[in-house]
Design a protein around this nucleic acid. Structure first.
Length: 235
DNA sequence: ATGTAGCCTCGGTACAAGAC
DNA sequence: GTCTTGTACCGAGGCTACAT
């Protein structure tokens, strides 16, 4: 498949990803000339593998391939960026994050008022300014399948992403992956001293139903607290 | 600093019981 | 006999706390 797409925002890539299948080749045309690192970051976040970047007038021409993962839902107007560890195979199949049958994110998120529409990340971004991404874009059945190196590369990508899009706050859902990424097993839930792109980072428990150290009520409470913090940081 | 046991919940599977 | 539904069991998983 050969296709020329003028890309200016991640949302356009998100839409493109949802209409393509893993393995599809896609050619993209950036009208302006962002850095190659920025192009690679945006594409990785949107679920594409960058194969080749060449200059094209004032912009850039990119050959890429659709990966079997979830595209980020991000924008420059986020009051909060939620960061999962990595997409589950359930989520990739469903087309939205936290889709596992026992995952408590959407039920707790809607009850807390963090989002108002169940299982709709685009609605969350548009109406609540809540974006979603992942530390590692590679999908797997479990977080333990991701190596420390992958987590560390993911943190570097998110650091650049947050520096670019400036979300109000960043919330990582899963202390284990955050510890792996920073190579510090003494890190605790809550506000972190490490920032991403100059934005304050909070870590909450992973909402997967397999995490027995939190429950629905606890997640609702933590999401409500997080919303207060986001509102304060936005004011 | 590192390793590991155990907590607690979930999902998958096997099996039994009941309905048709 | 076949299909559906309910139940029990067990391993997997994220995480904490404790041991080394």
């Amino acid at each position: 498949m050969r296709e020329i797409v003028d890309v200016s925002i991640p949302k356009a890539l998100h839409n493109l990803h949802t209409t393509r299948s893993p393995g599809d080749a896609v050619e993209l045309l950036f009208g302006t000339s962002p850095s190659r690192q920025r192009i690679a970051d945006v594409l990785e976040g949107a679920g594409f593998e960058t194969l080749k970047i060449t200059s094209h007038g004032a912009g850039a021409h990119v050959e890429s391939q659709v990966l079997p993962t979830l595209p980020d839902t991000v924008s420059s107007k986020m009051r909060m960026l939620l960061v999962g560890l990595n997409p589950s195979l359930h989520s990739v199949e469903a087309g939205y994050g936290f889709a596992g049958p026992g995952n408590r994110f959407w039920s707790a998120g809607t009850e807390a008022g963090l989002v108002s529409k169940d299982r709709d990340p685009l609605h969350a971004l548009k109406h609540h300014q809540v974006g979603m991404s992942d530390l590692v874009k590679r999908a797997s059945t479990k977080a333990a399948a991701i190596s420390d190196v992958e987590y560390q590369a993911g943190v570097a990508r998110l650091d650049r992403l947050c520096g670019w899009l400036s979300p109000g706050i960043v919330c990582v859902l899963g202390i284990t992956g955050w510890r792996s990424a920073l190579n510090d097993r003494n890190l605790r839930l809550g506000r972190q001293t490490t920032q991403l792109g100059g934005r304050t980072v909070y870590v909450l428990p992973n909402p997967s139903g397999l995490n027995a150290h939190t429950n629905h009520a606890d997640l609702v409470k933590r999401f409500k607290e997080l919303m207060k913090i986001a509102d304060i940081s936005a004011s």
